[in-house]
Design a protein around this nucleic acid. Structure first.
Length: 353
DNA sequence: TGTCCACGTCT
DNA sequence: AAGACGTGGAC
Protein backbone atom coordinates (compact mmCIF):
# COMPACT_ATOMS: atom_id res chain seq x y z
CA UNK A 1 0.00 0.00 0.00
CA UNK A 2 1.13 3.53 -0.70
CA UNK A 3 2.46 5.37 2.34
CA UNK A 4 0.75 8.56 3.39
CA UNK A 5 2.22 11.64 1.71
CA UNK A 6 0.46 13.90 4.22
CA UNK A 7 2.33 12.31 7.12
CA UNK A 8 5.66 12.82 5.35
CA UNK A 9 4.91 16.45 4.46
CA UNK A 10 3.76 17.22 8.02
CA UNK A 11 7.04 15.79 9.28
CA UNK A 12 8.95 17.81 6.67
CA UNK A 13 7.23 21.05 7.62
CA UNK A 14 8.63 20.64 11.14
CA UNK A 15 12.00 19.01 10.49
CA UNK A 16 13.22 20.17 7.09
CA UNK A 17 16.94 20.86 6.94
CA UNK A 18 17.89 24.47 6.36
CA UNK A 19 20.26 24.32 3.38
CA UNK A 20 21.75 27.31 1.56
CA UNK A 21 20.18 26.37 -1.78
CA UNK A 22 16.71 25.92 -0.33
CA UNK A 23 14.34 28.84 -0.62
CA UNK A 24 12.11 29.68 2.29
CA UNK A 25 8.64 28.09 2.31
CA UNK A 26 6.44 29.93 -0.17
CA UNK A 27 9.40 31.50 -2.00
CA UNK A 28 10.05 30.70 -5.63
CA UNK A 29 13.37 28.87 -5.96
CA UNK A 30 16.08 30.06 -8.34
CA UNK A 31 16.57 27.30 -10.96
CA UNK A 32 20.24 28.22 -11.21
CA UNK A 33 20.75 27.63 -7.49
CA UNK A 34 18.81 24.36 -7.60
CA UNK A 35 20.79 23.12 -10.59
CA UNK A 36 24.17 24.14 -9.14
CA UNK A 37 23.43 22.43 -5.83
CA UNK A 38 22.15 19.26 -7.49
CA UNK A 39 25.24 18.90 -9.67
CA UNK A 40 27.49 19.38 -6.64
CA UNK A 41 25.44 16.92 -4.59
CA UNK A 42 25.96 14.11 -7.10
CA UNK A 43 28.07 11.54 -5.20
CA UNK A 44 28.96 14.17 -2.66
CA UNK A 45 27.76 14.84 0.88
CA UNK A 46 25.90 17.99 1.91
CA UNK A 47 28.66 18.89 4.35
CA UNK A 48 31.33 18.83 1.64
CA UNK A 49 29.18 20.77 -0.81
CA UNK A 50 28.11 23.79 1.28
CA UNK A 51 31.40 25.75 1.21
CA UNK A 52 31.84 25.11 -2.54
CA UNK A 53 28.28 26.13 -3.27
CA UNK A 54 28.69 29.43 -1.42
CA UNK A 55 31.94 30.21 -3.23
CA UNK A 56 30.42 29.44 -6.63
CA UNK A 57 27.45 31.70 -5.98
CA UNK A 58 29.77 34.50 -4.82
CA UNK A 59 31.94 34.22 -7.92
CA UNK A 60 29.10 33.50 -10.33
CA UNK A 61 25.77 34.91 -9.07
CA UNK A 62 23.97 33.97 -12.29
CA UNK A 63 24.21 31.26 -14.90
CA UNK A 64 25.38 33.94 -17.37
CA UNK A 65 28.32 34.77 -15.11
CA UNK A 66 29.27 31.11 -14.95
CA UNK A 67 28.92 30.72 -18.73
CA UNK A 68 31.19 33.70 -19.32
CA UNK A 69 33.97 32.42 -17.04
CA UNK A 70 37.02 30.55 -18.40
CA UNK A 71 36.86 26.79 -17.74
CA UNK A 72 40.19 27.09 -15.93
CA UNK A 73 38.63 29.30 -13.28
CA UNK A 74 35.67 26.98 -12.85
CA UNK A 75 37.98 23.98 -12.38
CA UNK A 76 40.05 25.95 -9.88
CA UNK A 77 36.93 26.68 -7.83
CA UNK A 78 35.83 23.05 -8.12
CA UNK A 79 39.25 21.59 -7.17
CA UNK A 80 38.91 19.18 -4.24
CA UNK A 81 35.27 18.35 -4.81
CA UNK A 82 35.99 15.39 -7.07
CA UNK A 83 34.38 13.92 -10.18
CA UNK A 84 35.81 16.67 -12.35
CA UNK A 85 33.67 15.78 -15.35
CA UNK A 86 30.89 17.42 -13.36
CA UNK A 87 32.72 20.75 -13.46
CA UNK A 88 33.40 20.46 -17.18
CA UNK A 89 29.76 19.58 -17.82
CA UNK A 90 28.61 22.33 -15.48
CA UNK A 91 30.43 24.89 -17.57
CA UNK A 92 29.14 23.45 -20.85
CA UNK A 93 25.62 23.36 -19.45
CA UNK A 94 25.84 26.98 -18.26
CA UNK A 95 26.76 28.05 -21.79
CA UNK A 96 23.80 26.18 -23.29
CA UNK A 97 21.37 27.55 -20.73
CA UNK A 98 22.72 31.06 -21.08
CA UNK A 99 22.34 30.92 -24.87
CA UNK A 100 18.78 29.67 -24.71
CA UNK A 101 17.86 32.32 -22.16
CA UNK A 102 17.20 30.15 -19.11
CA UNK A 103 16.68 26.65 -17.83
CA UNK A 104 14.07 24.46 -19.52
CA UNK A 105 11.26 23.41 -17.19
CA UNK A 106 10.51 19.87 -18.34
CA UNK A 107 12.26 16.60 -17.53
CA UNK A 108 12.63 15.81 -21.21
CA UNK A 109 14.41 19.04 -22.10
CA UNK A 110 16.53 19.02 -18.95
CA UNK A 111 17.78 15.55 -19.93
CA UNK A 112 19.35 16.97 -23.09
CA UNK A 113 21.73 19.20 -21.11
CA UNK A 114 25.28 18.06 -20.24
CA UNK A 115 25.69 16.63 -16.76
CA UNK A 116 21.95 16.24 -16.23
CA UNK A 117 20.74 12.64 -16.10
CA UNK A 118 17.60 10.91 -14.93
CA UNK A 119 17.97 11.88 -11.28
CA UNK A 120 19.05 15.50 -11.70
CA UNK A 121 16.46 16.24 -14.40
CA UNK A 122 13.70 15.12 -12.05
CA UNK A 123 15.20 16.92 -9.07
CA UNK A 124 15.31 20.23 -10.96
CA UNK A 125 11.88 19.71 -12.53
CA UNK A 126 10.31 19.01 -9.13
CA UNK A 127 12.19 21.49 -6.95
CA UNK A 128 12.62 24.42 -9.30
CA UNK A 129 9.54 24.04 -11.47
CA UNK A 130 7.02 22.16 -9.37
CA UNK A 131 6.67 19.25 -11.78
CA UNK A 132 5.09 16.23 -10.07
CA UNK A 133 7.97 13.79 -10.50
CA UNK A 134 10.00 11.76 -8.01
CA UNK A 135 13.79 12.05 -8.33
CA UNK A 136 15.39 8.75 -7.33
CA UNK A 137 18.75 9.16 -5.64
CA UNK A 138 20.49 6.89 -3.15
CA UNK A 139 18.28 8.17 -0.34
CA UNK A 140 15.06 7.47 -2.18
CA UNK A 141 16.31 4.04 -3.24
CA UNK A 142 17.00 3.18 0.38
CA UNK A 143 13.62 4.45 1.58
CA UNK A 144 11.86 2.56 -1.22
CA UNK A 145 13.76 -0.68 -0.66
CA UNK A 146 12.76 -0.60 3.01
CA UNK A 147 9.16 0.49 2.56
CA UNK A 148 8.59 -2.43 0.21
CA UNK A 149 11.10 -4.83 1.79
CA UNK A 150 12.80 -5.37 -1.55
CA UNK A 151 15.56 -7.87 -0.83
CA UNK A 152 17.06 -8.18 -4.29
CA UNK A 153 20.52 -6.59 -4.26
CA UNK A 154 21.57 -3.41 -6.03
CA UNK A 155 22.37 -2.66 -8.78
CA UNK A 156 20.08 -5.28 -10.35
CA UNK A 157 17.11 -4.07 -8.29
CA UNK A 158 17.49 -0.50 -9.50
CA UNK A 159 14.71 -0.55 -12.14
CA UNK A 160 12.29 -2.08 -9.64
CA UNK A 161 13.19 0.51 -7.00
CA UNK A 162 12.62 3.30 -9.52
CA UNK A 163 9.18 1.94 -10.38
CA UNK A 164 8.26 1.66 -6.71
CA UNK A 165 9.51 5.19 -6.06
CA UNK A 166 7.32 6.53 -8.85
CA UNK A 167 4.32 4.98 -7.11
CA UNK A 168 4.93 7.24 -4.12
CA UNK A 169 3.56 9.97 -6.30
CA UNK A 170 0.16 8.26 -6.65
CA UNK A 171 -1.19 10.61 -4.05
CA UNK A 172 -2.97 13.91 -4.61
CA UNK A 173 -1.24 15.45 -1.61
CA UNK A 174 2.21 14.50 -2.94
CA UNK A 175 1.35 15.92 -6.36
CA UNK A 176 0.11 19.16 -4.83
CA UNK A 177 3.58 19.89 -3.38
CA UNK A 178 6.11 18.23 -5.71
CA UNK A 179 9.06 20.32 -4.58
CA UNK A 180 8.49 19.72 -0.89
CA UNK A 181 7.66 16.07 -1.47
CA UNK A 182 10.95 15.42 -3.28
CA UNK A 183 12.97 17.25 -0.66
CA UNK A 184 11.05 15.54 2.14
CA UNK A 185 12.15 12.20 0.69
CA UNK A 186 15.78 13.37 0.63
CA UNK A 187 15.57 14.58 4.23
CA UNK A 188 13.88 11.39 5.37
CA UNK A 189 16.68 9.35 3.84
CA UNK A 190 19.39 11.65 5.18
CA UNK A 191 18.17 12.05 8.76
CA UNK A 192 15.76 9.18 9.62
CA UNK A 193 16.05 6.37 7.11
CA UNK A 194 19.86 6.38 7.26
CA UNK A 195 22.08 3.58 5.92
CA UNK A 196 23.10 2.42 9.39
CA UNK A 197 20.91 2.39 12.50
CA UNK A 198 17.86 4.17 11.07
CA UNK A 199 15.69 6.15 13.50
CA UNK A 200 12.52 4.18 12.86
CA UNK A 201 10.90 5.28 16.13
CA UNK A 202 10.53 8.83 14.85
CA UNK A 203 9.82 7.95 11.22
CA UNK A 204 6.57 9.36 9.80
CA UNK A 205 6.26 6.27 7.62
CA UNK A 206 7.06 3.68 10.27
CA UNK A 207 3.58 2.13 10.21
CA UNK A 208 3.66 1.55 6.43
CA UNK A 209 7.22 0.21 6.30
CA UNK A 210 7.35 -3.51 5.57
CA UNK A 211 11.06 -3.83 6.40
CA UNK A 212 10.38 -2.33 9.81
CA UNK A 213 7.52 -4.74 10.41
CA UNK A 214 9.84 -7.62 9.54
CA UNK A 215 12.79 -6.26 11.49
CA UNK A 216 15.13 -6.21 8.49
CA UNK A 217 15.47 -2.45 8.00
CA UNK A 218 19.21 -2.26 8.65
CA UNK A 219 19.93 -4.95 6.06
CA UNK A 220 18.29 -3.06 3.21
CA UNK A 221 18.99 -2.20 0.52
CA UNK A 222 21.11 -5.30 -0.10
CA UNK A 223 24.14 -4.79 -2.30
CA UNK A 224 26.09 -6.95 -4.63
CA UNK A 225 29.59 -7.32 -3.16
CA UNK A 226 32.10 -5.17 -4.98
CA UNK A 227 35.24 -6.57 -6.40
CA UNK A 228 38.51 -5.69 -4.72
CA UNK A 229 40.20 -2.44 -5.65
CA UNK A 230 43.57 -2.88 -7.36
CA UNK A 231 46.60 -0.94 -6.13
CA UNK A 232 48.74 1.34 -8.25
CA UNK A 233 52.02 3.10 -7.63
CA UNK A 234 53.63 6.26 -8.93
CA UNK A 235 56.07 9.05 -8.11
CA UNK A 236 55.71 12.83 -8.52
CA UNK A 237 58.27 15.60 -8.55
CA UNK A 238 57.70 18.95 -6.88
CA UNK A 239 60.21 21.34 -8.34
CA UNK A 240 60.34 24.91 -7.03
CA UNK A 241 62.03 27.77 -8.83
CA UNK A 242 63.75 30.68 -7.11
CA UNK A 243 60.61 32.86 -7.29
CA UNK A 244 58.42 30.46 -5.29
CA UNK A 245 56.61 28.98 -8.27
CA UNK A 246 56.32 25.25 -8.90
CA UNK A 247 56.45 23.04 -11.97
CA UNK A 248 52.91 22.09 -13.02
CA UNK A 249 51.27 20.56 -16.03
CA UNK A 250 47.65 20.19 -17.09
CA UNK A 251 46.25 16.70 -17.64
CA UNK A 252 44.46 15.72 -20.89
CA UNK A 253 40.90 17.10 -21.16
CA UNK A 254 39.12 13.76 -20.68
CA UNK A 255 39.49 10.72 -18.45
CA UNK A 256 40.83 10.57 -14.92
CA UNK A 257 41.22 14.07 -13.40
CA UNK A 258 40.59 15.50 -16.88
CA UNK A 259 41.85 19.08 -17.39
CA UNK A 260 43.09 19.26 -13.83
CA UNK A 261 46.67 20.24 -12.91
CA UNK A 262 49.35 17.90 -11.59
CA UNK A 263 53.00 17.81 -10.66
CA UNK A 264 55.04 15.94 -13.28
CA UNK A 265 55.59 12.30 -12.42
CA UNK A 266 55.73 8.69 -13.54
CA UNK A 267 52.78 6.76 -14.83
CA UNK A 268 50.67 4.92 -12.25
CA UNK A 269 51.44 1.23 -12.61
CA UNK A 270 50.64 -1.94 -10.69
CA UNK A 271 54.16 -2.49 -9.32
CA UNK A 272 56.05 -0.15 -6.96
CA UNK A 273 58.91 2.03 -8.16
CA UNK A 274 62.39 2.05 -6.69
CA UNK A 275 63.92 5.51 -6.07
CA UNK A 276 66.44 4.88 -8.81
CA UNK A 277 63.80 3.85 -11.32
CA UNK A 278 61.44 6.71 -10.44
CA UNK A 279 64.15 9.36 -10.66
CA UNK A 280 64.82 8.55 -14.31
CA UNK A 281 61.41 10.19 -14.91
CA UNK A 282 62.27 13.39 -13.05
CA UNK A 283 62.03 16.66 -14.99
CA UNK A 284 65.75 17.34 -14.45
CA UNK A 285 68.89 16.05 -12.82
CA UNK A 286 69.20 17.66 -9.38
CA UNK A 287 69.34 16.86 -5.67
CA UNK A 288 65.90 15.34 -5.20
CA UNK A 289 64.78 14.82 -1.60
CA UNK A 290 62.35 11.99 -0.92
CA UNK A 291 59.60 13.56 1.19
CA UNK A 292 57.51 10.44 1.78
CA UNK A 293 54.49 8.64 0.46
CA UNK A 294 50.79 9.48 0.20
CA UNK A 295 47.88 7.10 -0.19
CA UNK A 296 44.78 8.05 -2.14
CA UNK A 297 41.68 5.98 -2.83
CA UNK A 298 39.93 6.46 -6.15
CA UNK A 299 36.69 4.74 -7.10
CA UNK A 300 38.41 1.93 -8.92
CA UNK A 301 41.96 1.75 -7.53
CA UNK A 302 44.09 2.67 -4.54
CA UNK A 303 47.08 4.82 -5.36
CA UNK A 304 50.41 5.15 -3.51
CA UNK A 305 52.59 8.05 -4.60
CA UNK A 306 56.16 8.78 -3.60
CA UNK A 307 56.85 12.50 -3.43
CA UNK A 308 60.22 14.02 -4.32
CA UNK A 309 61.10 17.67 -3.90
CA UNK A 310 63.86 19.97 -5.10
CA UNK A 311 64.60 23.66 -5.62
CA UNK A 312 66.03 24.84 -8.89
CA UNK A 313 68.86 27.40 -8.67
CA UNK A 314 68.42 30.71 -10.52
CA UNK A 315 68.42 30.53 -14.26
CA UNK A 316 68.21 26.78 -14.64
CA UNK A 317 64.54 26.47 -15.57
CA UNK A 318 65.22 26.93 -19.27
CA UNK A 319 66.62 23.41 -19.49
CA UNK A 320 63.37 21.70 -18.61
CA UNK A 321 61.38 20.07 -21.37
CA UNK A 322 57.92 21.58 -21.84
CA UNK A 323 56.34 18.12 -21.50
CA UNK A 324 56.98 18.46 -17.75
CA UNK A 325 54.89 21.63 -17.57
CA UNK A 326 55.59 25.24 -16.67
CA UNK A 327 56.41 27.09 -13.47
CA UNK A 328 53.21 28.47 -12.00
CA UNK A 329 51.69 29.41 -8.68
CA UNK A 330 50.35 26.31 -6.90
CA UNK A 331 47.76 28.53 -5.23
CA UNK A 332 46.17 29.37 -8.53
CA UNK A 333 46.28 25.85 -10.00
CA UNK A 334 43.33 23.46 -10.30
CA UNK A 335 44.79 20.80 -8.02
CA UNK A 336 42.77 17.65 -7.32
CA UNK A 337 42.84 16.20 -3.80
CA UNK A 338 45.54 13.68 -4.61
CA UNK A 339 47.92 16.47 -5.73
CA UNK A 340 47.06 18.58 -2.68
CA UNK A 341 48.18 15.63 -0.54
CA UNK A 342 51.51 15.61 -2.38
CA UNK A 343 51.91 19.34 -1.82
CA UNK A 344 51.17 18.92 1.88
CA UNK A 345 54.24 16.69 2.21
CA UNK A 346 56.60 19.45 1.10
CA UNK A 347 58.59 21.63 3.44
CA UNK A 348 57.32 24.93 2.15
CA UNK A 349 55.48 27.30 4.44
CA UNK A 350 51.71 27.76 4.00
CA UNK A 351 51.97 31.28 2.58
CA UNK A 352 54.06 30.15 -0.35
CA UNK A 353 51.34 27.77 -1.48
C1' DT B 1 43.83 -0.38 8.42
C1' DG B 2 39.84 -1.37 5.35
C1' DT B 3 34.97 -1.03 4.00
C1' DC B 4 31.05 1.49 3.17
C1' DC B 5 28.39 5.46 1.86
C1' DA B 6 27.65 7.12 -2.65
C1' DC B 7 23.05 6.21 -8.53
C1' DG B 8 24.66 9.65 -10.85
C1' DT B 9 26.29 10.61 -15.58
C1' DC B 10 28.68 9.56 -19.51
C1' DT B 11 30.69 6.54 -22.80
C1' DA C 1 25.95 -1.41 -21.25
C1' DA C 2 29.54 -2.37 -17.95
C1' DG C 3 33.05 0.37 -16.43
C1' DA C 4 35.14 4.97 -15.54
C1' DC C 5 35.05 8.62 -12.55
C1' DG C 6 37.08 11.54 -6.31
C1' DT C 7 36.66 12.57 -1.86
C1' DG C 8 36.17 12.46 3.06
C1' DG C 9 34.11 10.79 7.01
C1' DA C 10 31.86 7.06 9.82
C1' DC C 11 32.74 2.99 11.85
Amino acid sequence: MTPDASALLRWYDHHRRALPWRSLPGQRPDPYAVWLSEIMLQQTTVKAVIAYYERFLTHYPTVQDLAAAPLEDVLHLWAGLGYYARARNLHACAKRVSERGGFPDTVEELLTLPGIGAYTARAIAAIAFGRPVVPVDGNVERVTARLNAIEAPLPASRPLLARQAALLNDDQVAQSRPSDFAQALFDLGATICTPRSPACLTCPWQTSCIAHARGITAQLPAKQPRQARPTRYGAHFLLHDSSGQILLRTRPPTGLLGSMDEFPGTDWRSTPWTDEDALTHAPCLTDWVRRGEIRHVFTHFTLYLTVYEACLPDGHNAGIDSSFGTFRSAKRAALPGVMKKCLALTKQTPETR
